[in-house]
Simulated scan of single mutants.
Amino acid sequence: MTTRARRPQRRNQVLSREQIIDTAVEMLDAGGESALTIRALTERLSTGSGAIYYHVGTRDELLDTATETVIGAALATRPAGTAATPGDEIRVVALALFDAIAAHQWLATRLSLQIIRNPVGPVTVGIFERIGGQVGALGVPRASWFDAASTLVHYILGAVSQNARIEGDTSGIDPSGDRDEFFDAASTAWQGLDPEAYPFMHAIVGQMREHDDREQFLTGIAVILDGLTHLC
């Protein structure tokens, strides 16, 4: 007597687009892009592939939508209180993007792809509008708005991506490596350098070991904002 493979039980309630996106983000967070397939998603949601394609389209479109959802939430972050300055607005949204990419390790690669492939998409336009919308209020001349906004955006994306998981060739990199162990090993190696040939490296070795990534990130924002005031 032969037995048929048991099919996953279909859900009775109506599946929403938001449920699909939220589940996709959970799967990406847990296992990266390789974990998110249409088949795995349908099994997780106890539904058919037709429902996925109907609500969000292909897998690539789902990845784009997941990126837009997470970035959109970060861009919606506002300073507490009613007396926020343009600098406050920039710092708050910059830190929200930093925290979003730290929380969603797959996001850095997808964010870069969106900006390169779709310059008129909601991610690219949203980031530039949210950041760039403050440079005029800082007093930056209109002729320098693009340069000022680009400098901020490039710094933010570069800094946050540096702390994210690297997609592609990761030979020699332990994705689960401990941050403190890494900096301890690096600082020990720097201390072993010739102090006469590398005086700067010896001067900062203690700072490197004990620095806080978020505080260092905000220091960079402060340096850029201070520089932008000199464009006035």
Rank of each mutant, 00 (worst) to 15 (best):
W190F: 09
R91Q: 05
T170R: 14
F98H: 15
S112F: 14
R39W: 10
S16P: 04
G87M: 02
Y54N: 02
I116Y: 10
A100R: 00
A24D: 02
T170F: 14
A76L: 04
S112E: 15
T219N: 00
S150Y: 11
V92M: 14
I20T: 01
V153N: 12
G57E: 10
P86R: 03
D169K: 14
S16A: 14
A100E: 08
D212N: 09
G50R: 11
S34I: 13
S144Q: 10
R117Y: 13
T47A: 05
G206Q: 04
A103E: 03
Y155A: 09
A30T: 13
I101A: 11
E61T: 06
R91W: 02
T23L: 10
D22R: 08
I52Q: 08
E167D: 08
D147H: 09
I52Y: 11
E33I: 06
G206F: 06
E33R: 05
G81M: 06
R117T: 12
A100Q: 03
A35T: 01
V120P: 02
L107C: 05
D212L: 13
M201I: 10
T23S: 08
I116D: 08
V223F: 14
E18H: 00
P119S: 13
H211I: 12
T229P: 00
I115L: 15
P119W: 10
V56F: 03
E167P: 00
E68T: 13
N118W: 14
G139M: 07
A94I: 04
L138P: 00
D184R: 12
T42A: 11
A185W: 08
L231F: 11
D29A: 06
M201T: 09
L111Y: 04
I38F: 02
L95P: 00
E33W: 01
G227Y: 07
R39N: 13
R44Q: 15
A40R: 02
S144R: 08
T219V: 00
V92H: 05
Y198H: 14
I131W: 07
M208L: 12
Q216K: 04
T77N: 04
G87T: 02
M208A: 08
